[in-house]
Design a protein around this nucleic acid. Structure first.
Length: 823
RNA sequence: GCCGAAGUGGCGGAAUUGGUAGACGCACGGGUCUCAAAAACCCGCGAGAUUUUCUCGUAUCGGUUCGAACCCGAUCUUCGGCACCA
């Protein structure tokens, strides 16, 4: 055996795993299935990002650990290769995505992913761009359409001028395109939508029961954005009824004016002739203000009086109707009742235009007067006629709705922020939407037997901003015949959003060999839902929401017998470099290949997991990887039978007794047994709670103990190999083999620990006087307070502190601490 | 503005339930070895002081407790989500 040589060891085991099919799994024979899923990457031309490696390794550790615990772990990986990320890059490089993507995938898999030692079963790779896959993506579309969950509609859409396509609301971040950061424009267009709102309540309510990272659930809750309240009808004098949505029907008596959005059509009807000119001027100005500026809440409130008056249904008060752009046409009814006493926005508006402010909810003493500041909090109703004295929110809301509902003037209503998913993309690099338009038959889904609708190989694939996909320019694709009547028809030329490809990919992995169905029923029953899903939180309202929705849709349509795709989701953190976000412009991108090449994949893996919290993210520092190589060197030296000579260039200065033979006797010595068994226990526990940095710290402590005491023992080496195996799989295999074991260490089992060895006969008690540490005493465990007291009181240090003072209280924490309170 | 998470040495970060603050590692300092350097190994490493020991110390201020990084209240800062959403 030679010294630890990562390139040789890692190459050896890469080949061995491949040759022996170590990572392959017979899905049908597996007895304890565990589906360990990681979010699949898009194969960028830049290569694997260190953030990908961080994410994958953390997931792989779970898979490998579970395998050592005896589970049949299925750990697949694939490539999310359709979509604008790939296409935009191809455009920039002046290349064709169809030519680029397969090469990128090859490079990702062969040169990068296989190098980092993931326990991936590559025989089940999924590539979303091959017809064998997107055939079923199109099948999803058709199935949704047949089940009334997809529809085509004209409406306001988000248009990215950079990517020259529409986007879903989820893909617009602060008015910018999430892909290219162009400012997104509003356009009126006809597009395909998926009815995500059909399951909004279930998607929201089920979150409470999901074993997911809390921050992910919070993000999804806020995105769905349910708010309950009521619609209330106000009669306009000499005009129609105007309905408003409010979450605070309890404050109806405080409604002193109404506001309608400038776009609201009712304005044409109700505006007084002498106010018309002002209104039109205001509407023109409002229309010219960009969406962003309009939603900037720091902007001063503006508005015009319409000359109309409405009647407050609770007290028949006559209140003016204003038009103002702080009310949005797209939410609720586009009109509100304004309660300046209890809503900050209404308050600001009322102050500016000198409208009355009437308090209807009592505020606690010390709250500023409502004439000065709105009070949105709890309280009892006042100035509210028969409802005075009711607790506003809990009693006032239901009672006031009830009383108005009797006259048909109010009804409970719940609003959502969630919008249906706009899935059309006027782009090339995606699965064509499988629909045919016929003058006679309308929009006809492509029959299943005709799927896939192949994405034609065209050279001019660049988007042109015409509002149509580049496919539209190709008559041989565009023109077709109607599958129903056989008459002339045209194809839908838009492709579907890449998030549809990724909304179902995890059903495909266990069923890759079935060409005639998207997923096999038996396989799916056995392997799904996914047991553990690890990924980035940036997909909280994108992929994770879409895939939950699609799961529900497939469940509703009878294709799945479960409605939630992931049993458990864990969001990993983001890694930064030297405290700053990694970016090309900063020039601080970490290229994994450099570190894997210099120190080995195992050292790189171990460093990524050690540098910080996996769940919170960490800070990448250059020196760290080298330090972890040093740790692996020490572990190697402590564990293998013949750790080999000193490193090259060493002048023979190695301590001669550092590497004696391994002892074959059982491990001995209370101290060593304690370290051994407490480490086994702690490492397992830490892996389970994703606390990889502390798990590694524990292994380091054990190695330090062994090295310091020159302990070299075969059984302990076997434990070390298995403890480090999830983190540094190649090294673990090599150690395991060196100990004379045949076969992979991952065919062995996680070491068990003996509680007896962890319980020490003596324990160091902390002696505190008035809560301050004054002394430590080594005492036998399990002593009673009565037995301890004389021992403590005989300590000279303790005596000095309590001398001449009165002992008023004694606190005992068994086997841990004594606190004497003196006066 | 609302919701969520966080703030600990020179640095990355530990601290299961309120019970020894700073595990583990980096950097740094000293030493062994060497002609020398690197590597390896050993020792030290929160601050201060009147240095066998004591005082202070987990963003700031206050509280609860025998005892607080941890619980409570207020404030500041950072990050993430939502945001004129009625």
């Amino acid at each position: 055996m030679a010294k630890y040589d990562p390139p040789a060891v890692e190459a050896k085991w890469r080949d061995r795993w491949e040759r022996d099919g170590t990572n392959r799994l017979d899905l049908d024979r597996a007895e304890r299935p565990f589906y360990n899923l990681m979010m699949f990457p898009y194969p960028s031309a830049e290569g694997l990002h260190v953030g990908n490696v961080f994410a994958f390794v953390g997931s792989d550790i779970q898979g490998r650990y579970r395998r050592l615990l005896g589970w049949d772990v299925f750990e697949p990986l694939g490539f999310d290769a359709f979509g604008m990320h790939s296409e935009n890059f191809a455009i920039k490089q002046g290349r064709h995505p169809a030519e680029m993507v397969p090469r990128n995938i090859e490079h990702f898999r062969e040169d990068q992913l296989k190098r980092i030692g993931l326990m991936v079963d590559w025989s089940r790779q999924v590539d979303t761009t091959v017809p064998e896959y997107y055939r079923w993506t199109q099948w999803m579309f058709v199935t949704l359409l047949r089940n009334g969950l997809a529809y085509r509609a004209r409406g306001q859409v988000n248009w990215c001028p950079g990517c020259k396509t529409v986007l879903a609301k989820e893909q617009v971040i602060d008015d910018l395109c999430e892909r290219c950061s162009s400012r997104v424009e509003k356009r009126e267009m006809e597009q395909w939508y998926f009815r995500t709102t059909a399951f909004q309540d279930e998607l929201l309510d089920e979150l409470d029961r999901l074993d997911w990272s809390e921050r992910t659930k919070t993000a999804q809750r806020q995105w769905i954005g349910r708010s309950s309240g009521a619609d209330v009808a106000f009669r306009i004098e000499g005009g129609p009824e105007l309905r408003v949505f409010t979450t605070r029907p309890d404050t109806l008596y405080g409604a002193t004016y109404m506001v309608v959005s400038p776009e609201h059509p009712v304005l044409d009807e109700i505006t007084a002739p002498d106010r018309r000119a002002d209104l039109e001027e205001y509407r023109r100005r409002a229309a010219s203000i960009s969406e962003t500026d309009r939603q900037d809440e720091k902007r001063e409130k503006t508005g015009v009086f319409t000359g109309a008056y409405a009647v407050n249904p609770v007290n028949s008060a006559r209140i003016p109707v204003w038009a103002a752009d702080y009310v949005l046409m797209g939410y609720g009814t586009g009109a509100i009742m304004a309660v300046p006493a209890h809503d900050a926005r209404d308050h600001e508006f009322a102050r500016k235009f000198d409208l009355p402010i009437i308090q209807v909810v009592s505020a606690p003493p010390g709250t500023p007067d409502v004439q000065r500041e709105a009070y949105p909090g709890e309280g009892t109703l006042m100035n509210s006629g028969p409802f005075d004295g009711l607790e506003a929110k809990s009693q006032g809301i239901p009672r006031i709705i009830e009383s108005l509902a009797a006259e048909g003037k109010a009804e409970p209503r719940t609003l959502y922020r969630l919008r249906d998913w706009c899935v059309s993309r006027q782009r090339y690099w995606g699965p064509p939407i499988p629909v045919i338009y016929c003058d006679k038959c309308g929009a006809v889904p492509v029959p299943e037997k005709d799927l896939p609708v192949l994405l034609p190989a065209i050279e001019d694939f660049r988007p042109d901003g015409s509002g149509h996909s580049p496919l539209r320019r190709h008559a041989e694709f565009y023109n077709t015949v109607c599958p129903q009547c056989g008459g002339h028809a045209t194809r839908e030329t838009d492709v579907s959003d890449n998030f549809l490809c990724s909304a179902w990919y995890f059903y495909r992995y266990p069923s890759t060999e079935f060409a005639d169905r998207p997923f096999d029923a038996g396989r799916t029953r056995k392997w799904l839902p996914v047991d553990l899903y690890v990924g980035g939180n940036e997909h909280a309202v994108l992929h994770l929401l879409y895939s939950r929705w699609l799961c529900r849709a497939l469940n509703r349509a009878g294709f799945l017998d479960f409605a939630e795709p992931y049993r458990r989701f864990v969001a990993h953190g983001i890694i930064v470099k030297d405290g700053a976000k990694m970016s090309k412009s900063r020039g601080n991108i970490v290229n994994p290949d450099d570190y894997v090449g210099a120190y080995g994949a195992d050292a790189f893996r171990v460093y990524l997991m050690f540098m910080g919290s996996y769940l919170e993210g960490g800070d990448f520092r250059d020196g760290g990887v080298r330090a972890m190589k040093g740790f692996l060197d020490r572990l190697w030296a402590a564990a293998v039978p013949d750790p080999g000579g000193p490193p090259a260039g060493d002048g023979g200065n190695r301590r001669p007794d550092a590497a004696g033979p391994l002892s074959d006797a059982p491990p001995e010595g209370a101290e060593t047994l304690f370290w051994l068994h407490s480490t086994i226990k702690a490492v397992g526990h830490d892996i389970e709670r994703f606390s990889y940095n502390t798990a590694l710290a524990r292994i380091m402590e054990l190695v330090n103990h062994l090295t310091r005491n020159r302990i070299r023992n075969r059984e302990i080496s076997g434990v070390l190999a298995r403890l480090i195996a999830p983190f540094a799989p190649h090294l673990a295999e090599e150690i395991w083999e060196s100990l004379g074991n045949s076969g992979s260490v991952f065919r062995s089992s996680w070491p068990s620990h003996d509680e007896e060895c962890i319980r020490r006969p003596e324990v160091e008690y902390v002696v505190q006087i008035n809560g301050k540490l004054r002394d430590r005493l080594k005492l036998a465990i399990g002593l009673t307070p009565e037995e301890i007291e004389p021992l403590v009181l005989s300590s000279p240090v303790v005596l000095r502190w309590i001398e001449g003072k009165e002992l008023v209280k004694k606190i005992y924490v068994p086997d841990k601490l004594i606190n004497l309170v003196v006066k």
